[in-house]
Design a protein around this nucleic acid. Structure first.
Lengths: 147, 147
DNA sequence: CAATGTTACTATCAAAATGAAAGTAAGTCA
DNA sequence: TGACTTACTTTCATTTTGATAGTAACATTG
């Protein structure tokens, strides 16, 4: 059987996890999507040590998911706002949340509401082309160049 | 502004990340979905130290995403197979991969194919009820008990 | 039947990451 | 002038990781 990693480097999952594969980064992105932008907001929200927070925010900024924006000239103060790449990370967070709701829920969980309709969101993943739900059909992982 | 964590504990994302929030666990789940089941397969695939692998497999087993199965009585040998909860984690991995393909791709990435149709999958997240794509409509995160 | 191989680990220890606590810099406000 | 705010940095003990080597239980080979 295939013993070698099919996805060592050319795997898009590994590429993503290379810098986003820790809890703090993902919780920071979650908080950014909720609307937090400032150092102290993140720190209080997560109870994270400022050392770690500084580094995580720097990485997320370098990697293009957040960007620094001056929100006050006097005194000079910066905040962190989501970029397009950061906003496009929302589906990942929503699917993580969907799994957590299904398998780690106890009836007292945060839910996500459509602001306009008031309906609760139930995120599912589908294939954009066929509309088939992910997980309902057998899949094959294909190395680049083998098609 | 709201300075306190809206999701400290009741957040399904935090619940999930509490034990799946590291790179190795997620790559192990990826490999399990690809079809790997044995200790040495995972070890060679990921280049992970056996100490860490033992612990991660134990956690994934305790948390119900993998289960041990005897595949040989003599000599006694066990393998790790995905449970229903583990299989239901696939949408998360696919969305991570979709983000990685879009923002960390270089044209030589692994892709995912529908075995029957041969079509490449492009995973997107939608709301099951309305069918609206996640990220296209404004959302609100609602604490439990406030509805 | 002794030597070698396979599989799934455990033991040991150095190096790196994390976390807690306190301190700092550049300003504002009273 | 002195207290306060915001966004950090410094320091250092603790925890986690990673590399390497070793082990236990069997099978296979010559």
């Amino acid at each position: 059987m295939n013993d070698k990693n099919i996805c060592a480097d050319p795997c898009p999952i590994a590429r993503c996890l290379a810098f986003l594969g820790d809890t703090w980064s993902l919780l920071l992105l979650r908080d950014a999507h909720i609307g937090l932008t400032r150092f102290d907001q993140f720190r209080k929200s997560l109870g994270i040590a400022p050392t770690i927070l500084t580094r995580r925010l720097a990485t997320l900024t370098e990697e293009g998911l957040l960007e620094k924006r001056l929100y006050s000239e006097r005194p000079p103060r910066e905040e962190y706002v989501l970029t397009a790449a950061g906003r496009d990370f929302l589906p990942v967070l929503m699917m993580i949340g969907a799994w957590g709701s299904q398998y780690r829920g106890d009836g007292r969980l945060v839910r996500v509401q459509d602001v306009e309709t008031g309906e609760y969101i139930k995120p599912i993943a589908i294939d954009e082309v066929t509309g088939a739900r992910i997980g309902t059909r057998p899949l094959r992982f294909v190395m680049p160049g083998s098609d």
